[in-house]
C-alpha cells in the first residue's frame, strides 16, 4: 500500500531539513491583526498539529501557505524557496467542507489535476487515482458523483485527490468537523495510515485531540495569532505549561 502514496523527496531537500518556514509573518484583516510576526518551521517528514481556540488564526496559516491569502508582512519559505504558484505545487490541502468538484465523477476528481497540472497521461493518472481511492476504501465508487457519497466518503476522496498530486506537505484544516460523528473515525483512520506509512509532511489543524496525540511529532498551541506553547504531544497534552493551554484542553475534552 505504501507504494501508492507520495514519497517524493527532492534532491535539494535534505531529510529532516526545514520544509516550511514562517518568518515574522503578519496578517491583518482590516484593523484586526490575526497573525503578529509569527515564526515557526516544519521539518521534512514531520507531522505538526496546530491547536487553539476558534478564531486564533489556525486556518489563516494554512490559507497563507496555500496562497489563498497573502501576508501583509514577513515571508513564507517552502523547501527553501519563497512561496509562489510553482512552489505551491508541493503543497496539498484538504478542506473542512471537502470542496469536491460536484460536476465530476469521483475518479475524475482525482485525475483532473495530475493530468492538467503535472502532465500525466490519462492512463497514468487513472492508475494513480485508482490506487489512492483503493487506499482510502473507495475503490468501488469510481463512477459515483460526490453528492451520492456520504460526507466521510467525500472527505476520503478529497484526501485521495490531494495525494494524487504527490505533495510534499499536506495541509489538513479540521477535516472531520463537518462530519456526522459516526463518520469521523473512518477519515481519521485513513489519515493515521498515511501518517504512519509515508514520509509526507503534515500540517494539521484539528479538534480531535486523540488523533493529534497519535500522529503528531509536535503540537503548537495557538492563541491570538501567536504560538504560546509547543512541544511533543506527551508534553502539551500531558503536562501543559501555559495556563491558556490547560484551559483550552479542558474545554475541548
Amino acid at each position: 500500500m505504501a507504494t501508492d502514496i507520495p514519497h517524493q523527496t527532492t534532491s535539494e531537500t535534505t531529510a529532516g531539513g526545514e520544509l516550511v518556514r514562517f518568518e515574522k509573518v503578519t496578517k491583518r484583516f482590516g484593523a484586526t491583526t490575526v497573525l503578529d510576526r509569527l515564526d515557526f518551521t516544519v521539518s521534512q517528514g514531520k507531522h505538526v498539529t496546530l491547536i487553539g481556540p476558534s478564531g486564533s488564526g489556525k486556518t489563516t496559516i494554512l490559507r497563507l501557505l496555500m496562497t489563498l491569502l497573502t501576508p501583509d508582512d514577513g515571508r513564507i519559505l517552502v523547501d527553501g524557496q519563497p512561496l509562489d504558484a510553482e512552489v505551491r505545487k508541493k503543497i496539498g490541502m484538504v478542506f473542512q467542507q471537502f470542496n469536491l468538484f460536484p460536476n465530476m465523477r469521483v475518479l475524475r476528481n482525482v485525475t483532473e489535476a495530475p493530468v492538467h497540472v503535472l502532465g500525466l497521461s490519462k492512463d497514468e493518472a487513472v492508475e494513480r487515482a485508482k490506487g489512492l481511492l483503493e487506499m482510502v476504501g473507495l475503490g468501488g465508487k469510481l463512477d459515483a458523483y460526490p453528492t451520492q457519497l456520504s460526507g466521510g466518503q467525500q472527505q476520503r476522496v478529497a484526501i485521495a485527490r490531494a495525494l494524487a498530486m504527490r505533495p510534499q506537505v499536506l495541509l489538513l484544516d479540521e477535516v472531520t468537523s463537518a462530519l456526522d460523528p459516526e463518520l469521523v473515525a473512518g477519515v481519521l483512520d485513513v489519515l493515521r495510515d498515511i501518517a504512519r506509512s509515508t514520509d509526507i509532511t503534515m500540517l494539521c489543524v484539528t479538534h480531535e485531540m486523540n488523533f493529534a496525540r497519535d500522529i503528531s511529532d509536535r503540537v503548537l498551541m495557538f492563541d491570538e495569532g501567536r504560538v504560546i506553547e509547543s512541544g511533543p504531544p506527551e508534553q502539551i497534552f500531558g503536562a501543559p505549561e501555559h495556563e491558556r493551554t490547560r484551559e483550552f484542553l479542558s474545554a475541548v475534552h
Binding site: T67, M93, F101, A113, V117
Partner: peptide, 20 residues
C-alpha cells in the same frame, strides 16, 4: 470553495473555468 480547491490543486486559470 470550488475556486479554492482549484487553487489548492494548482489548476491553471483556464482549466478552472472550463472544467470546474
Amino acid at each position: 470553495g470550488q475556486w479554492e480547491a482549484a487553487t489548492a490543486l494548482s489548476l491553471p486559470r483556464r482549466r478552472t473555468w472550463i472544467a470546474v
